[in-house]
Design a binder for these strands. Structure first.
Lengths: 336, 336
DNA sequence: ATAATGAATGTGAACGTACACACGAGCAAT
DNA sequence: ATTGCTCGTGTGTACGTTCACATTCATTAT
């Protein structure tokens, strides 16, 4: 109960100890070119010695730049989004930004609105949107809040040029074509939820591949991305064995579906071939190892950041899509 | 190119339009008790109308409170940490805090140091540590940076009272006892990496259960949490079939190990029983569905936040451990 | 030799908010 | 009537930094 509050050292403390003005210290901090090497070193020594840290709040206040990138994501933990967020954090930090993440659980308008509101209160300078529902994008477009943003979803489906994404349509096309090339003609599709952009894109890719060969189009099942759904949908679907292959919109649903196959006494890929999407790290060790479409979530995250940072500096960059990759494992085979 | 920079409205703009002093606006914002209802409403109306948002930076500067909780986590994306972070974000937001996450890839001292340094630069008021290496805790203790912190790892193993965790030792004991009760006497263990606190705790629980019954203690294999490791370790271990059960320190390694069993022509649980740890959502759909130890990552995250928030308000709370739960599925059976 | 230039540094604002204090009005107690 | 208290509101100041501008000094060009 002696020293009361020990105020953190500030720029003036440093200046005093280094025998210079506070402005000189500020210049050292901001790497101003015209500063004598010896002075600079002296200041840096003092900074080091007393453990001075620039006050970000003061900095943000005077520059009116928060150096913060907002990230809007979904509440549910998924491999893809998590990986992207992690990559975004690293890339942002390297670029001198911090990120502030917020997640939305429900998809209703007020929830989206309040999440965006929260981010605006944080004074984010840019925004990465991983929450991939159509409505979110609508809300963003409508609010028009004046910061550059990027969605990690397909541009052509979601609309707008603010996107940085893996070409989901192409990925789904590859997956479906792979099944067709193996000789399958009756191919089911378990999709993601209705208003998810990825779900729609993958469904579109599936339909394109099916239509190319004039195969029978079957109404896709709308799932919820979970293995549980894949399982129960599988149990249902397998009561009528009128298909020999299934393309699931993500690996988890594929896993659940395979589980249902075993429970129904069916062999994968003997009786039914299954393709997933994402290539989560576990997919290679499913039983059987899963054929799937790999997308590089980390790369997308990094590119999103570099795109935004460029935009903040007034540079325009093109939003080239990333091409996904088909990984053929043992869950697919020719029909017998 | 007309309006140049449109300055965001500030507290004085609001005051002017509402016909009060800026201080009154500040009082409304901070819910000061003695303010006339009519005045308050008038101010709120103006705020609403012109879309005023308090400037967080200015606030942080003058109060010297950042209202930020730092989260230190690992770079690699895992279900557990991701779930906890997500829950932390929500809980923190509800408590009026934001979070700033940073991750460390390597475990070397300078990396840890620079991550903590980064968080201190963000002026975090408290810290949640999910990066669960012993060294991280050592570094934190050593730095003594004067903000309350909580680790999501076991107190007794990691040391110190700053912990909020699932009782990993108990969980591992339950898992191992389950195998023993089924009649297994030769039980292997694939552990996590050497210096991870969880890995150590789970190993300890395993050893305790083994020793209780005077079974043969076997040197645990040190893994890296990945399914890949579980697979290759499995291929190696299964060359000598001198065990009938395996307790893997997480579900991914269990999955990889099961994969190795199938590849080696062994049946799970017919030839070998397998128990995992974590109960990731996919575990119920592995082939066979995995017996594992469930821990509630979200709950831990929430409690960590409430603990820190209490501590920031000067209230002391006890750090009761959360008890995990054994989930018996079909990957375990009596030896034959 | 002198003016002009540029490098290196210093001084006075300003950013938007909250806190300490002050002040007037109304009211109860003396 | 005076004092003291509470309620509601206003004024001055500080937080720590950067920006615009000012100043000094050495160097170069005329």
């Amino acid at each position: 109960m002696e020293p009361e509050k020990v105020r953190a050292p500030n720029i003036r403390d440093v200046a005093r100890l280094a025998g210079v003005s506070y402005q000189t210290v500020s210049r050292v901090l901001n790497e101003h070119p015209s500063i004598r090497e010896s002075t600079k070193q002296r200041v840096l020594d003092v900074i080091q010695e007393i453990g001075y840290r620039p006050n970000q709040a003061a900095r943000a206040l005077v520059t009116s730049r928060s150096r913060t990138i907002g990230v809007l994501t979904t509440q549910t933990v998924n491999y893809g989004p998590s990986t992207s967020v992690s990559a975004i954090e690293v890339a942002a930090r390297e670029a001198g930004y911090r990120i502030t993440v917020t997640s939305i659980s429900s998809t209703d308008y007020t929830a989206i609105r309040s999440a965006l509101d929260y981010l605006l209160t944080q004074a984010v300078e840019a925004l990465v949107v991983i929450a991939p529902q159509v409505r979110v994008l609508d809300a963003i477009r409508e609010m028009d809040f004046g910061v550059p943003y990027v969605t990690l979803q397909n541009a052509d489906v979601g609309g707008g040029e603010h996107s940085m994404s893996v070409d989901q349509v192409a990925g789904a096309r590859m997956a479906t074509r792979h099944l067709i090339e193996l000789g399958h003609t009756e191919i089911m599709h378990i999709s993601g939820p209705q208003d998810w952009i990825e779900a729609e894109a993958r469904m579109q890719g599936y339909l394109e591949a099916i239509n190319e060969k004039d195969l029978r189009t079957r109404a896709p099942i709308l799932g919820d991305w979970t293995a549980h759904f894949g399982y129960y949908a599988g149990l249902e679907l397998l009561r009528f064995r009128d298909f020999t292959a299934l393309f699931a919109s993500n690996d988890q649903m594929a896993l659940g579906f395979i589980h249902a196959c075993w429970d129904s006494g069916l062999d994968v890929p003997g009786d039914i071939s299954v393709v997933g999407f994402d290539d989560i790290p576990e997919a290679a060790h499913f039983y059987p190892p899963l054929t799937t479409v790999r997308q590089n979530f980390a790369e997308i995250g990094r590119r999103a950041v570099s795109l935004l940072v460029s935009e903040l500096q007034g540079i325009t960059v093109d939003h080239a899509q990333i091409v996904p990759e088909l990984v053929v494992r043992r869950s697919t085979a020719a029909p017998r």
